[in-house]
Every structure is written in structure tokens, then in C-alpha cells.
Amino acid sequence: MSKPKKVITIGGGVAGTEVSSLLAELGYDVTLIEKNSQTGGKLNGWSHLFPTGRPAAQVAEFLQHKVQRNSFKTICQTDVSQVVFGNGSFLVKTSGDERLPADAVVISTGFDIFDATRKEEYGYSVYENVITSVDLENRLKAGAPITTAAGNKPCRIAFIHCVGSRDEKCGNHHCSKVCCVTGVKQATELAKQLPQAEIFCFYMDLRMFGLPYESMYREAQEKYNIQFIRGRLSEAAENADGTLQIKAEDTLSGRPLKMQVDLVVLLVGMVPGKNTAHMADLFELQREPNGFLQTEDPHLFKNRSSRKGVFLAGTCTGPMTVDETLDHARSAALDIHHYLQNK
């Protein structure tokens, strides 16, 4: 057999590690470029995954095992700085001055978390007791009890859905898809930890799209007494004692509502990563109006970019759950395999 064909994966999160492992297993010469000091992506910061409640670390470990078993080359703390297009091949230059030739490239640069300070009226980074779902997840992972800034047990907690999603004021028209169920998951976790606390979810629409998700929603209502209020938060204000006054309309009863809460959790959405935008520029790829990378065909070729030989895996193409990201990465591996076989 001739020399194995070379594949470069850019971005070593869930999608990047999975696609790299699979391609290495199929015998390709894979190099994974990761900008952080370790692979695994945002999964490393998550505590438990919906819908099963399995520790995220287990999934991360599974992925890491595969990486080790297939021993492909991983370059961390490195960015891609330049790309030269050859005839059906690529030359990728890194910030570490390496020049890597490739027959195919996988972009798996993922998403960024919406910067909640951009919705100043919600008071994130202004008021100490306003946190994001990511902050909460990190705290849950660290195993620390969830308290207010002053160290007290929160008696009333409000989850705010659609922060930075479906919000044209922030330039994000899209639904981030995973926040609704994340909210239900986190609210349930808090209810378990703080059985005395009253927990409210303020939503515009609840999108429980996955098969088991509706049951999670039902359980949250039935078992954990979590209350769902259909109304979007307009603003938060701080009381003298550090509690928060939040305002929304209870749209179903058609009346304005205000509520004093101890903790506000903003369910921040997914936005196209800065790195994803950078890759789109380097590889001259088409992007969707919402900034995510455009696939060649939204039904049939969801792993192909607008440029031949450049493949897409994971949330650089749009919001996905961890499970969907894995599926997308696996289909990418197969698509690349076909492409390289027939090349």
C-alpha cells in the first residue's frame, strides 16, 4: 500500500477528537491542531449530560481513550495562520511555524458561548447574583454547593431562557436548541440539591425536541415542582440586600410580573466561534447568515463545506447536543474516507 493520505483536523473538541480517532483507525495520517492546552473542548467543563444525567467526564474519558488507542499526532496551543491551496491538496501553516500538507481538512472549531454582558439589562457582571448556565455548570462540576454571592442558600432561583438566542438585537436570529433542555436539566439538579428552593423557568417557547426531553420537562414539573412562566425577562435590578428584582410579562395570564429572586441563571446560547469565522476566512468558506459554516447540502451533504476537500464536523455548522456532535463527526469520517478513497 502506498503512503497513507494526510488529514488535518482543526479544533479538538468533541467533534474534532472523534473524527480524528476514526480516521486514524481507518489508516489515515491524521494531525489534530488544537488552540487550547488540551483536547476535549467545552465538554471538559460540563458536569452532567442530559438526558441521562451521566457525568460528562465519562464521555470525555471514552473519547480520550479512543484518541490514545489510535495515537495520531496532536498539536496543542496552536492556531492555523495560513492556508495554501494546491491541486486537490492543502498546505496548512501553523502559529508554531509548522508547514503541514494535507489531502483533506476537517474543520471542527465549534461554537462560542454568547457573551451575556452584551445583554446589559440582565445585569450579568453588574450584579453578583446573576450567573450564566455555563457558570452554573462549572460550579456543579466543581462540586461546590450552589450559593448566592454572599454564601447563602438561594431560596428562589430564576432560569432565563433564550439569552443571546432568538434575539436579533444581539444579531442572533437562530435558536440555540440545547438551552431549553439544559435549563430543565440544571433546574432539576438545583431542585435536587436545594429541595426548599422555589425554581422558575422564564421561557418564550419550550423546545423539547429530543425523544426523552419531554419526559425531563414533565418530571421537572411533576417531581421537582419547577414552575414554567411563559414570558421573556425584560430587565433585572438589584435590591439593597443583593437580591434581584426581575420583570417579565406572564403572557399566559396577560399581566406584568415582578419577582424577587436570590439567583438568576441566564441560559446563554451558542454563537459561531471566533475561530470558526477565522477558518471561514482562511479557507474562503461560505457562511450562513447567522455566521455558522454553510454545508454543501442541508439534507444530503452536511459534512461538506463550500470548498472541495474541506469537511465540517460538529457545532461549527450550527447548534448541536453532544450526542448529535458525535454523530456528525462520525458521518464526517465516513464522508472523508469515501472522498479520499476515490481521489
Binding site: E120, E121, G123, V126, Y127, E235, A236, A237, E238
Partner: peptide, 9 residues
């Protein structure tokens, strides 16, 4: 200013 709590605070 109520929508820019940072100024208010």
C-alpha cells in the same frame, strides 16, 4: 438607564 444597570449602579 434602567436597561443599562451598570450606569445606574
Amino acid at each position: 438607564t434602567h436597561l443599562t444597570p451598570s450606569i445606574k449602579k
